[in-house]
Write a protein that binds this DNA or RNA. Sequence first.
DNA 1: GTAGGGTTAG
Length: 449
Amino acid sequence: MTTTMIMRTSASSLCNRHTGIPGLQFRSRIFFSKNHLGLFHGSSQSSNQNPSKSKSRDPQHPFDVTNLGDASNMFDKMLKQGRRPSVVRFTQLLGQVAKLKHYSVVISWYKQITLLGVVPDAFILNIIVNCFGHLNQMGASSSVLALFFKLGLQPDVTTFNTLIRGLGLDNRVHEAASLVRKMAFFGEGCKPNVITFGTLIDASCKLGQNGRAIQLLRLMEKYDCQPNVVVYSTIIDSLCKDQLVAEAFKLFSEMESKGIPPNIVTYTSLFLGLCKSCPLTEATQFFTEMSSKGISPNVQTFSILVDSLCKNGKLKEANQAIDLMTARGMEPNTLTYNCLMKGYCLQRDMNKAKGIFDLMLKKGSIVDVFSYTILINGYCNKRRMKEAMHLFEEMTRKGMIPDTVTYTTLIGGFCKDRRIDDAQNIFSNMKVGGPLPNISTYSVLLDGQ
DNA sequence: GTAGGGTTAG
């Protein structure tokens, strides 16, 4: 089956084409056998030459701060220098701190240096606009725009894009759209570009407004702005998440016909869409197709595959998928392992599940709240509350914050084991500074009574 | 030579 065929097919037939046809069971053994590595066209070579894209930090960068403590020491040192460093030096430092997501620190330091007489320039103001945006302080963010003019500085398209992103994060898509209409009046360098529209489209998608996103896609052309792979992928991803796979494939064929080549992100979104809405065979066929087109699946694509295989009880194949990604020089990450662990829990094979958990620890993979919760859930389902509680205590000891799901899982476990008092105890603990109970928590508790 | 903007997995 070709991708073109998928694109011409409606969502329902897309999901039904293989049902009931004998011999079209999932052919995992063939699919993952070594002879068929060639299916993944040229990728084993290229992925070896092109290992995981590490963002190489400029070694010359004067502020290679990796944590707030270092940055803070540096900032103090700069303040104590006899001759005040230039705004450029502060911009470098604040930029790094913003990258570490310590937005309020950036704002506070910015205020300090301006009080000391450092005159801001457009660079540092853009950082400030960004930080206010991330802090959901759009009033403050917009007032920085006024400051540009007060200081005789010219904002540029990135300034506006940053503002638009902030409005989007604050769910204020209407205001964001209105700013897009106005921004060109602020100068030649402020005309909306593909990133402006991409940002606005992303915000609309996150609000579940796919129709509006597609309208904006059409509007771009009126602004003489050609959509690119990122814009298309944003909408395709949103449609796939809403299980509108046929719509997504329509856009996929549209972008191809416009000569915009889809990339691994586009394919990964579509693959997820197929996994969510269609039988596994459809999805795995798409997976092989993408490989034969020279698009190499990455860790995320593989993790989705592992997840799907596990959800369908194909643990053996899931392991083969992990072997394959490892053979290609990709390291499974926390998410990959969590999927596999969940798969074993679903099979009620706690030995294997715990084995994966230990493997993660051994390999130095990050074991997160999800990892613990999955395993706790596995033990709860088998009424092995001792082990479940042991893990719960262990994660707390490590400084991890159990979330509502973790607590609800434990409460459910105790209820299932007819230990209502223990369930009540966990619930009481939760109410003392723990996460907020949700509807599932209450329903689990009520069921247990 | 400093900064800022859009896409993928629980």
